[in-house]
Simulated scan of single mutants.
Amino acid sequence: MDLDGEAWRAKFQDFQSEAWRLETLPEYRVPQEEEEIRAYLAGERIDPHTYSDAYTEDLGRVRREGKSKGRVHIVTRPLTTYLQYEFMHYRPHVWAGDDIRIMDVTDRENPLAGVQDFWVFDKKEVVLMHYEADGTQISREVHEGDVTPFMEYQRIALAESVPFDEYVKSLTV
């Protein structure tokens, strides 16, 4: 079953304990971000100490309700311009409660090679994220099968990654 619109937004309102994502692409083409990316390329930066948007505000709701939200993003260096832009937003998202981790596979084998992006809700429902090669989203699909492999992918991703702030510090050393 494809998910769109209100049914998709409801997933983020209705989960009971955890919403978690695996991100595997070096770039995502999101129409809502195009203007921000142009500004980023022109040298504009957000102030992570004062930045707030609908996503950070929703993270506050998630925390108040005793829930968690997180992700692991698989990357290789050098980071794409898109990842640099995204990392700028990751810092305030982490501060707002998003458990963002980075799995850098630049100099090692990727244990999750071939695994596509997905969201998992409450460790019992998986939504597969389908993208074109350039990062343009095609669709979201509720996975109808066994979620066990996705729980293993999550376990591996968490074990093989580091917290975002730790990763960023390692880039400046």
Rank of each mutant, 00 (worst) to 15 (best):
R140M: 14
Y167A: 09
I138M: 12
Y40A: 11
Y153N: 06
E35V: 14
L25E: 12
G5I: 06
D99C: 02
Y90A: 12
W95L: 15
R77G: 06
R91D: 13
L22M: 05
T24S: 10
L112M: 01
V126W: 01
G5N: 06
Y131G: 00
E44A: 13
F121N: 02
A39H: 10
Q32C: 04
L171Q: 14
D2H: 09
M129K: 02
E34I: 08
A10V: 05
P78K: 08
D134Y: 03
Q32W: 11
G5Y: 04
D104A: 08
P111K: 03
Q16A: 14
Q154A: 13
V115W: 04
F150Y: 15
E109V: 07
R140P: 01
V127K: 02
E27N: 14
E109C: 02
R64I: 02
R71G: 05
A96H: 04
Q154T: 11
P78S: 13
T81A: 12
S139T: 15
H93P: 02
H89S: 03
D165H: 12
E141R: 07
V162D: 01
V142G: 06
A39M: 11
R63T: 08
R63S: 10
E132S: 02
K124F: 03
F12M: 07
E109G: 06
E33W: 08
S52G: 11
M103R: 05
S68D: 08
I138Y: 00
H130E: 15
P31Y: 13
D99T: 07
I156D: 00
P111L: 07
T76H: 07
V126K: 04
